[in-house]
Every structure is written in C-alpha cells, then in structure tokens.
Amino acid sequence: MDGEPAAVAPDIHAPALPEAVSPGRTAAAIVLAWLLPGAGHVLLGRVGRGIAFAALIFGSFGLGLAHDGRLALHDRRQPFLTALQVVANVGVGPADLLARLSVYHEPAYVLPADFADPRYDHRLSILRRRTESGLSIYGTAYLWTAGLMNLLLLFDVWDIGTGRKT
C-alpha cells in the first residue's frame, strides 16, 4: 500500500547470529568454568566442547602432578614472577588446592617471609625435593599450561554467553 515501506525478505544465506544468554547465567557459567574445567561450556549447552576441554585440562593437570610439577609458592623476594606462577597454578580451580593439600599437607600458597617460621623450612624442603626430579620441569609446564588454558576458557565462556561466539 502507499506510504508503507516495502517488506524486506530475510537473507537466507546470512549466518545465524549466536544467541546471548542472561548475564546471570553467563556469570554462573564463568564461575563454574573455573571451579570445574569444561563445566561452564556444558552449562551453556556446548556439551561436547566442555567434555573435550575438561579432558585436555585435567589430562594436562594429571600429567603435571605425575611428573613432580611445581606447585608454586609466592615468595616476597621474587614477588612478581612467583605471583604469576601461583596464578598459573590456581587457574585450574580447586583441583590445585587439593593438590597442595596432598603435597604440602596444608593449603600452602605463600613462602613465609620470616626464615624462622617453621612453615618456611617445611614448604621449601617439600618444594625443593619435588623439583629435584629431572622431570619436574615438564611437570611444571603441564601444570601451568592446564591453569592458563582454563583461564582462557573463562573468556571463551564469556564470549559464548554474551553472544559473540557460537
């Protein structure tokens, strides 16, 4: 009819835009992704990818522990580098805490600044004993890779949740 704009036919060849989910669900997925690698993707409906990522991250984490990988302790004498190392470890989620409880027999994340602190000798001796192994450098690479890969996955979950990725 006159005055009405002509109807535009939808472009059937255009790729479908990914759908965003609610911000709350996205936030929950990001938290879940850190707590349990791969679970954030599953929560957003990407079950296959979630399972694949979980296998990769837990596989790398398991290889790291099996090869005496370094569960880093923050050291005030080298604050920046050791902080990065701890972040790389913690990226894998609560599994890192369980590993520290198993290795250090306590939730150890920091090397005490006071040399007289009994925890200093305890934690340092465990760390040194563990890294004496010739394979420890590989174990450390696997552990940090697991953590850093999982941190990347948090961003992937965020992109999926906000509709930037399918």
């Binding site: 694949a52 990522f53 990769l56 696997y142 890969m149 990347l152 996955l153």
Partner: peptide, 10 residues
C-alpha cells in the same frame, strides 16, 4: 598435541 588440540577446538 595437547596445546594444538586445545587451540584448534577453541
């Protein structure tokens, strides 16, 4: 292999 598969999937 681990890293390649991860980034290929991502």
């Amino acid at each position: 292999t681990l890293v390649s598969v991860f980034f290929a999937l991502l």
